[in-house]
Design a protein around this nucleic acid. Structure first.
Lengths: 206, 206
DNA sequence: TTACATACCAAGCGCTTGCTTGGTATTGTC
DNA sequence: GACAATACCAAGCAAGCGCTTGGTATGTAA
């Protein structure tokens, strides 16, 4: 199952906005602007101009500016959780599952949803505390996918370090790629980068 | 040479503000607030209140709010570069130098300068482009220290992966600890965390 | 004592911000 | 074709923002 298909299912269930709808287009532009300039430096007038409407008209789609940020984050997590789950299900061994997770996360950070993922990392504090709690719950589901695989590898004896610590070091390492990894400029392919990451983890030979 | 001694030398050379001076106190409070609420959400009135003066009085010490952010970043980089250099010089082998670097960076991220380091990571885009270039130059000096050690390890055959890629994955992994690592709540000591990081790098046995 | 610099206060200016309001096209439904 | 819901515009409000201004108290040097 590819990402397009998964997206289609989520749109049908109303869990993610149709990218072609007015709301979907706004969220995509919002992710772009939030990433480029940061949430606070992006005005509602910027957002409106990006989709060609007046700033006041935004508030027919969202009650507040923060709601836009939250929607970007929530929908991105939903999509990526589904993609991760599919990646895991398609793999057989735990080692393959781990590689699939690393590869999928790199794709989500550096591919289509990259802007939204960067927003998720860097604009966290711009959410109200109430929203933070809500988004955190969704992230926990996502993190559980990782921890299950890492814990299984630990039990197999393939992973020596603590799964929690490894996941957190990995979160940082992978998120950070958004600041420097530019596959389109040649150099490392995404697959090669995945290899480097897996190599860095130093799994003991099976 | 410990961090206090290094700080003293930098203060004497006017490269870093005396923490006990008005300017130094303001910068420390600024780092705290910028980290806690983000640069944009921190007002000049917040900054002034934190050191007990009127908002307008800030502008006798700094011409603009951005200049405060930049000063926090520049002084933090200067201090940490000096600390890193001392850590390297005190170590004999390249393996020990690497461990010293990891340990020192974890200390700078999670110790006294932690708030300022977090600002350096998360408030980057709030700097004007001109300032970004300026700060980047300082960071390059700092990064060279890392790359020299990693490249030497690569030549020795101890490191198999690309030094540039490893440094960047490490930057992310170590920076990210600021979001989750809480040594004061028990659990992992900073030394143990250093061990996990070194282990994760999977250096081949010498 | 004079002269100047430093560090600060009290007040507020001009601008931008998120958001509201009252109204008008456009679309979908029966 | 009637009618409501939806999507939008034009105008602007109230609040908060970074920063300026004109002035005063304190310290320092000749």
């Amino acid at each position: 199952m590819n990402q397009a298909k998964i997206l289609q299912l989520l749109v049908a269930d109303n869990l993610v906005s149709d990218p072609d709808s007015a709301r979907g287009r706004l969220l995509r532009e919002a992710a772009r602007l939030f990433r480029e300039k940061g949430y606070e430096r992006t005005t509602v007038r910027d957002l409106a101009a990006a989709v060609g409407i007046q700033s006041g008209s935004l508030f027919h789609h969202f009650r507040t500016k923060e709601e836009i940020l939250k929607a970007v984050m929530v929908e991105t997590i939903r999509l990526n959780t589904a993609v991760m789950r599919a990646a895991i299900d398609a793999a057989d061994s735990n080692r393959e599952k781990l590689r699939a997770l690393v590869s999928a996360e790199l794709e989500s950070i550096n591919g289509q949803t990259g802007e939204a993922m960067a927003v998720l990392v860097f604009e966290w504090r711009s959410l109200s505390e109430v929203s933070q709690v809500e988004v955190l719950k969704l992230r926990d589901i996502y993190e559980t996918l990782w921890l299950d695989v890492l814990s299984a590898l630990k039990e197999e004896g393939a992973l020596l370090a603590d799964p929690f610590v490894v996941r957190r070091l990995l979160t940082g390492a992978l998120s950070w790629t958004v600041t420097w990894y530019r596959p389109e400029r040649g150099g490392l392919t995404q697959d090669a980068l995945t290899d480097e990451v897996i190599a860095m983890l130093g799994l003991s030979p099976s």
